[in-house]
């Protein structure tokens, strides 16, 4: 007979591995499916100051690895594979990967979120050739150059501020006429000598040869278009939940998040959603790990009813 896991966790970020720590520690046979490497979005952050227990801060990749090791200490298995299809509706859930079909009594979805893309034609092709989504990762390559930050939220403002210390000039392109970012960012950004703003503007084209040379922007207030020179474009327009796999099976809200309350229970019993992928007001590492504990609690309750 094929092996049926008690719990399969899809995604190896903080929510996924915390779920696994709890379920495997409670004695449930647990598998984590991770497509790349432990840590999820945390791996992009070299310094995490707001996860408790690390007075000197912690490196996101190291924290992710430690969470993985913590879960594996209690018997969690990790498989590096990408999920291509799921069937959550039956009592035995099936999860298809290029490495085979896996079965589970319960599934915890921890697929997280990824940077939103502008959706422009040559955007993907230019990643690493002037287009970036992580100023902390790639900013240093633009030392002394001109860069553009697209967006007006907290992460765009933080990126612009970070880049203003390295680059010759930073241009912030935002579709509204004021920043959406919290007030703490406004003053230092407006004060910075080398930061310029293009308000009411969206990017209609990335101008590139082999690498980025500039962008064409459209000003919606004036109805005008213009080209501006830039060596780099940092796109910081928010994150999108990774829920394509579950459409048509689970209830998903208009922004793509899986609908689940604090219990992490989704519209199908035995299926739970944790971390950034779930409808929730605050998305932080601590709230993701908290979801893991809740999901484990209710998964245990569910597993008890079916056995």
């Amino acid at each position: 007979m094929e092996k049926i896991y008690d719990v399969i966790v899809i995604g190896g970020g903080p929510a996924g591995y915390t779920s696994a720590i709890y379920t495997s520690r409670a004695g449930f046979d647990t598998l984590v499916l991770e497509k790349v490497s432990a840590g999820g979005q945390m791996t992009q952050t070299p310094q995490i100051d707001n996860y408790p227990g690390f007075p000197e801060s912690v490196d996101g990749y190291a924290l992710g690895s430690k969470m993985q090791q913590g879960a594996e200490r209690f018997g969690t298995k990790t498989m590096q594979s990408e999920v291509i299809e799921v069937n959550l509706k039956d009592k035995i859930k099936t999860i298809k990967t290029p490495d085979g079909v896996l079965l589970a009594h319960s599934v915890i979805i921890a697929t997280g979120a990824e940077h939103k893309h502008l959706g422009l034609e040559n955007e993907e092709k230019l990643i690493g050739k002037g287009v970036g989504y992580c100023a902390a990762c790639d900013g240093i390559f633009y030392k002394g150059k001109t860069v553009t930050v697209i967006g007006g939220g907290n992460s765009a403002a933080a990126d612009a501020l970070f880049l203003s210390k390295i680059c010759e000039k930073v241009i912030v392109v935002h579709r509204r006429d004021t920043l959406r970012a919290e007030k703490v960012y406004h003053e230092p950004l407006l004060k910075a000598q080398n930061v310029e703003f293009e308000w009411n503007s969206t990017v209609c084209e990335i101008l590139a040869d082999n690498k980025v040379m500039g962008i064409k922007i459209k000003n919606s207030a004036q109805g005008t278009e213009k080209e501006i020179h830039t060596d780099g474009v940092f796109i910081s327009i928010g994150r999108a939940p990774q829920t394509e796999l579950f459409r048509g099976q689970l209830d998903i809200d208009k922004n793509g998040y899986i609908i689940a309350d604090e219990t992490t229970k989704t519209s199908i019993s035995g299926v739970f959603a944790v971390g950034d992928v779930r409808t929730k007001p605050v998305r932080q590492i601590v709230t993701a790990t908290a979801d893991g504990a809740c999901a484990s609690h209710f998964a245990e309750e569910y597993l008890a009813t079916i056995q």
Binding site: S37, G39, T43, D59, Y61, C137, I140
Partner: peptide
């Protein structure tokens, strides 16, 4: 790679 880059640490074991 670079020492300050998180994704570099993640790709390194692979």
């Amino acid at each position: 790679w670079a020492s300050w880059c998180g994704p570099c640490k993640a790709i390194s074991p692979m």
